[in-house]
């Protein structure tokens, strides 16, 4: 069976959930081979084996010193050497860029924001703010596919070897032209990451100020990530990286709670594929209610604290 390359997302050796989703999808297509960049593979290997990685290609951390290009070189080289059947990455902003450059190198087509992929590498997409479902496939070269987090249900496999193989990497001069000279982490607290979280609680203009504690408290009671509408981000009430929607992050959690968000099409584009949607809005006509599995027409400043208290009570 041909290898399917899966680019691993990890933080300090901790494999992200989306990688287990990609490995699960890769098993439909062929034999999953994880591609690990940087240190920490010792702590991540068990998780890769559990979800079916037969091999783990390990590339040195130096690959991270330059923007995107060295990772594309790495994936293109492995795809050629191993005769890969497909390359899967998670659909984050950076990984989509890696997918694009890799496709150019391989003379392949690329498909991004995929919500499902089958054994023939036919992909499913939710487009136009969730209004239309399309299926697509790559017609030229090795398919390069970027899959949205939380789209595939991860399933453990039995007895994969996750055999480590170091990859000799020689980064070309052309790939060294954009150099990362500093990484700046902005405080984000102990909450799960937005695109990965199983539950997201988002606040909109209805929150009324930069005091987001009503949203954060509910999120914390559920172990959820916090999101925000663009109106909130534009007002400077909450940082940019938490924006959900067309020009923000696309999330697809099991539960999405929208507090004081009207549900504009551009917001919906980023959350419409959530499995369950709960909305609190004082306007019964708010379009968000069209999507809600459960909606409360009321003031979020009384409903959300009561909900938080109830959840904490029932724990």
């Amino acid at each position: 069976m041909a290898e399917v390359l899966v680019l691993v997302d990890h933080v300090d050796g901790q494999v992200k959930k989306v990688t287990t989703e990609l490995l699960t999808a890769a098993r439909r297509i062929g034999e999953p081979a994880a591609v690990w960049v940087g240190d920490g593979v010792e702590s991540g290997r068990a998780a890769l084996a559990e979800f079916g990685a037969e091999k783990v290609y390990v590339a040195p951390a130096e690959v991270n010193d330059y923007v995107v290009a060295p990772k594309a070189e790495l994936l293109a080289k492995l795809a050629q050497e191993k005769g890969a059947a497909a390359i899967l990455v998670s659909a984050t902003a950076e990984n989509k860029e890696i997918a694009g450059r890799t496709a150019v190198k391989l003379g392949s087509g690329v498909l991004t924001d995929v919500v499902d992929v089958n054994a023939e590498v036919v992909t499913e997409h939710s487009v136009f703010g969730g209004a239309t479902v399309t299926h697509a496939r790559v017609t030229t070269g090795v398919p390069v596919v970027a899959v949205r987090p939380n789209s595939v249900v991860p399933e453990a496999a039995v007895g994969a070897a996750a055999a480590e193989e170091a990859v000799a990497v020689e980064i070309s001069d052309a790939a060294k032209t954009a150099r990362v000279v500093e990484r700046v982490a902005q405080e984000k607290g102990a909450r799960p990451e937005l695109t990965e979280a199983a539950i997201v609680v988002s606040g909109g203009r209805g929150v009324g100020s930069d005091d987001f504690s009503v949203v954060e408290n509910l999120a914390d009671s559920l172990g959820a990530a916090v999101g925000a509408s663009r109106a909130v981000v534009d007002s400077g009430w909450y940082p940019n990286q938490f924006q959900v929607g067309q020009t923000g992050k696309t999330v697809s959690p099991n539960l999405y709670v929208a507090l004081g968000i009207s549900g504009a099409i551009q917001h919906r584009a980023g959350m419409q594929t959530s499995k369950n949607i709960v909305a609190v809005n004082k306007d019964p006509e708010a379009p968000i209610f069209e999507l809600a599995d459960f909606g409360v027409v009321g003031d979020l400043h009384t409903v959300a604290p009561q909900l938080t208290e109830e959840i904490n009570k029932r724990k």
């Binding site: 239309t132 399309t134 697509a136 070269g141």
Partner: peptide
């Protein structure tokens, strides 16, 4: 000469109507 092809498309199935309550 496209490197990708849209195989088919359809309107997304409508979400089942939810429960909306007044506070």
């Amino acid at each position: 000469n496209a490197t990708t092809e849209t195989v088919d498309f359809a309107a997304a199935p409508p979400r089942a109507a939810g429960t909306i309550v007044k506070d």
